[in-house]
Structure formats: structure tokens, C-alpha cells
Design a protein around this nucleic acid. Sequence first.
DNA 1: AATTGGCACTCATTTGGATAGAGTGCTAAC
DNA 2: GTTAGCACTCTATCCAAATGAGTGCCAATT
Lengths: 351, 351
Amino acid sequence: MANKSVSDSVVNERAQHFLKALIERYIRDGQPVGSRTLAKDTGLDLSPATIRNVMADLEDMGLVSSPHTSAGRVPTITGYRMFIDSLLTVQNLNNQEVERIRKEIMVGGEESSDVLKSASKLLSGVTHMAGVVTLTRKDKNNFRQIEFLPLSDRRVLAILVTEDGEVHNRILHTHRDFTRAELDQAANFLNKSFAGYEMELVRQRVLQQLNDARDHFDQVMTQALTMAGEMVNASETKEDCVIAGQTNLMEFAELSGLEQLRKLFDAFTEKREILHLLDQFLDAEGVQIFIGEESGYQLLNGCSVVTAPYQVNEEVVGVLGVIGPTRMNYERVIPVVDITAKILGAVLKKH
Amino acid sequence: MANKSVSDSVVNERAQHFLKALIERYIRDGQPVGSRTLAKDTGLDLSPATIRNVMADLEDMGLVSSPHTSAGRVPTITGYRMFIDSLLTVQNLNNQEVERIRKEIMVGGEESSDVLKSASKLLSGVTHMAGVVTLTRKDKNNFRQIEFLPLSDRRVLAILVTEDGEVHNRILHTHRDFTRAELDQAANFLNKSFAGYEMELVRQRVLQQLNDARDHFDQVMTQALTMAGEMVNASETKEDCVIAGQTNLMEFAELSGLEQLRKLFDAFTEKREILHLLDQFLDAEGVQIFIGEESGYQLLNGCSVVTAPYQVNEEVVGVLGVIGPTRMNYERVIPVVDITAKILGAVLKKH
DNA sequence: AATTGGCACTCATTTGGATAGAGTGCTAAC
DNA sequence: GTTAGCACTCTATCCAAATGAGTGCCAATT
């Protein structure tokens, strides 16, 4: 028994080597790989027959499977998982490549939204897959200023500016017309009271003041508070997500046919599903990889997602990554995602 | 000779009938239609042989062609053109459908950008193709108000509001820091001077004042004018275009294979090409149809574009339409595009 | 005990030919 | 002018055989 366990682990070590070779090969060619090819591929000088034995073991362990009797083997999900978790050899990018990424990310100005777009395009360009960058509305966002502009017909345009320079605007419907002066007064009041405060705090205060002391203020102030409340709430909901290069996925029509691809595309335009998915990786540290089937979203079957959160001033503000076929070149994609996250963080910090 | 010409035109009348039947059939099934099917399809009681003769004539005229000897006939581009120009019988939508469109377009609020999005989604939904709506920045847009907010580090956030409630914001880099008071002063000046003026006029005036009397104003004013100039220019460039339902095109994989489709998708995300194309139809009146191959853009091969400009207060402000395979159901698509344009115009006017 | 060569077997893919079917063009008859 | 009939041309389909990649297992080898 002890003996068997020892021999097992020995076998496993070599078996893992084969598993690695097999997956690397499969990633390159996309076709089931047989014992003969594998024999040539790996450095060890073994005959196909030996390999077949090992492969049978691997199949028993559920790491590979064969589509049919006389095809080679194909990695299973668990096979991929093991490959990714323990036997991946990531090649680090050389300085030249890092520099190129840095440059690419800077083109198109340093507006934060532009940078995100560049990053997304970059990811899709370099990896030939779909690049995604999300920016979580950081809750530590501070209130800077609010302005109201009267429109016709009892509508007021409210403009809310936060400390990071984001501008939100929204048309509010009021129950009576306000003059410019009234609105200015209201805005002044709000600006004096709340400038510099954290957004969440502002909301709480506004609600509190509304409830506590509805009578202490005149009608204009009440209205102003109501509007401010609406604004603050609304500005919370918006979430940003930039995606580039979906069409790259077309090359991999393997993704179980057109219908599957179509659904994925629809998800891309809807974005929300993707966002929800990526949110899970916000807390994680470093590059995370996950394989479509593991997610429950069966629309990602055949896909993998490689993500990394990026941070500005020690704080995670978003996550970025690529979505592509499970059969993707992880050894290359991983460092790219990793570096891009770091560079993106650095660029945003400078700003 | 005269005889022949008369007989020609007689033949042509009937031939056109056949052409129409053929194209309608081809649009339904997507397959070359032969003489037998056509014989049954058309009301006239003629034998396939007769039809074959007519078809031969049509082929001579370049209106149809056969993919190979023993396939039926398929309409050519010129065939489509004739069909569209002269022998189309558009079915008008019944009131119920019109009402549904009106409702659909109103969901999601009456913000103009929301309405455009709804319209685009609607078009794609009803026609099962890609819906496009563009909004040309109307030059008659009037200046309402400008505000400047100081950011850190010699940057100023400028907010420009136009009479129609559009808000543009932009970060400007200045050569020194300005205080809040200075900026307010500048904004006040600009607002007093230009409120209500047409945008183009504002730009001219700004430039003029800058040149004419650089010395009459203090430095703040000069700076303000410069910034205003930048803003006005910038706000011109932005153009809006909403597209929905590209994935519907996937059903028509006929579009000469995947590569073609992929290019089309890329064009959709780039949007600019599409915009440029649609701009051509701004001046036209009513529903315009044009067939991919006619455009010069060979990326639209196999596609047709059905567009209609829509107008608010007698003035054309944008164009909308659908893009789909040349083999589309024009008799249904045309009235949908037509009505949608009218409704969209009406909805925007109300607002 | 691990490795290997050999062999039978399986199964997907390819190949080639035969066939059916759809459709045309032409000609002669109506 | 219209039609029926016929020969002809393609394409698509089907089937059977050949191909070939690959496995699994067993017996021989190291």
C-alpha cells in the first residue's frame, strides 16, 4: 500500500509532464493529440506504447478524455485546472514588450476613460481575444460641486461634479418652475454644506436633513435636497466597462458553433453579465484564471477568463482581463494581463 | 422595328411581373428559383417552358443570373435595383403596429439619447437586422451656459450646456492656476455675452474678439475666450450613432462567409465608416435604399441599407435605418423604417 | 517492474462512383 | 406566342470501400 502510493506519486510526476506537453500541444493545434505526436513532442525518449499507458492513467484520473475511440486525447476541465494551477511555465515579457505596452496605453490622451479604452484595445490586440476593462465606481469618490440649470417646463438640469473630475448630468422633473436665482441659491447651499465629503456620506446627510428638519428650510432648499438626493443615487448606479476586440473571438468558431458565439456576442453588448462576472475577481489578488464551465454561466462554455485587478494608490479600483477560448495560450496571456494591470495602475496614479 | 419595340414593351411588362415574383420568392427562401416554382408562384397560368424563355430574356438584360447551368435564377444587383425602384408593393403597417412602435420608442424615458437607443433597438428587433440611428449635431444648436471648475494642477473642467439640454464637458489645460472667483467671473462674462446665440456664431464671435481686442481684456478674459473657443470646437466634433442588433446579422451567414461578417462587425464597432455612409442620406428625402455593391465600400457586399432621415420642426436632424442582407424583406422593412423615422421625429419634437 | 513491439480493432474522414433531381435550352408541334 | 418533349448539364446525395490515425492489450524484452 505504502509502496503503491510511492509509485503512484512517481508516475504522477511523469504523468504531469505528459499532461503539460499534451495541453501545450492541444493549445497550439486545437486537435486531439495522440500518443505518437506526444512521444515526439516531449524530450523523453519513450515509445508511443508507453505513452498510451500513461494516457490511460490520465484518463482514469479524469484529466484528459478522448472524443472517440480512435482520436487522440483532449484535456478536460479538471485537466486544464491542474495545468493552470500547478504546471504552467509563464514566460516573462522582455523589457521591450513592456515598454511597448506602456506606450500603447498612453496614446490617446490621459483622460481616464481614454486610458481604459486603450488598455482594452491593447489587451485584445496583443492576445487576439476580447479585452475587457472595468472601472468600479470607487465609493470613496468625493462630492465637489453641484449646479442646477433651469430648463423649460419644470425641468432642471443638474450637474454633479466629483473630485476626480467625473461629471454626471441628469434632467430632474420638479413640481414647479424655479428661477435661476433660486437654483443658484440652492446649489450654493449644497456646495457649501457638502464640498469634499464622501459621496456615501453626502447621501446619508441629505436624507437625514430632509427627514430631521423639513420645516427649518424653505421650499427651495427642500427641493434642492431632494434633487441632490436623486442625483447622488443616480450617480451610484453607473458602472463603466470597456470591451474591445470581440471579433477576434470569431476566429475560434470552435466555440461550439454559431449559436453559442452569437449568445456570447449578445452578452458583450449587454455588458451587464460580463460585469457581474468580473466583479467576483475584484477581491482576488494577482492574476486569476477561470474556466467557463466552472462558472455556472453556461454561456461561457468553451471560454476562459483571465483577469487581474489593478490598483491606484494601494487601492483596487477595477479589474481587467481577456476572454477567449479555453484553448488559449495561457503562458503568454497571463504575463500580458499581469503587466497591463500594473501599468494601467501606474498610469492612472500619475494622473 | 416599331412593331418590335411595341412587342418588347409588352414582353417587358410581363417580364417585370416575373422578376418581381422571382425576387420575392428568392427573398423568402434564399435559394435560386427555377421555372417550375415560378410557374406555380405567379397567378398567370403559364407553363415552365414559357417562363424559361422569359427568364432567358431577363438574363440577357442582366437582371437575373444563374449560379450554374442547372440551378434556378438569382436576382442580380441591377435586378434588385429595378425591383426596389419600380415594382415594389409596400404593405402599410396597420394602426396596431404603428401604436406598438410608438410605445416601444417611448420606454426608457424621454432623454434624447435614450430615445435614440430605443429606436435603434426597435428597428433591430422588428426587422431582425442591425438597426442604426444617427444624430447629427445640429448646427443650429444654441449656446446656453458655460461653467468652469478649477481642478488641481492647472487644469480646468469646462462644462458647456446647450439649449437642448446637452451637456459637454472637457478638461482644459491652462498655463497657470485660476481661482474659483476668476473662473466664475470669466464664465459670467461668457454667459452674458453669448447666451442664446447659435453655436457657430458664438465661435466666430469668440475668435473675432480674441483677435480684435486682445489688449482690451485682462488675462482672465483672454483665457476664458480661448477656453470657450476650445470647447465650442470640441463640441462640434462629437457625433452620435447608436447601433443595435448586430448579432442578428449572424443568422445570415450567407454573407459570403465568416471573414466578411467579421469585417462588417469590426466596422460596426468602429462606427465611423457607417456614419460616413449614412451621412450621404441626410439630404435625401423619404426612404432610401441602397445596395452594398453600389457603394464602393466592398465591405458591404451582400448587404443593403434602408434609411430614412427624420426631422424635428421641419428640419432634418439625423438619419436612421437598418443594415441587412441584400436579400431582405423590403416590403416590410421599408414601412417600418419610414414610420419609425416619423415617430422618432414626433417624439423628439414633443420633448 | 517498467518498457516496448506487434497486432487486432474502432471509428472518423476521405474517396470515388453511381444515382437522382432540378433545371436549362432547344426544337418541333400546336 | 405558347407549349410539350427531349437531351444535356450540373449539383447534391448516398453508399461502399479505402485510408489512416489512434487505441488497448498481450507477450516479449530489458
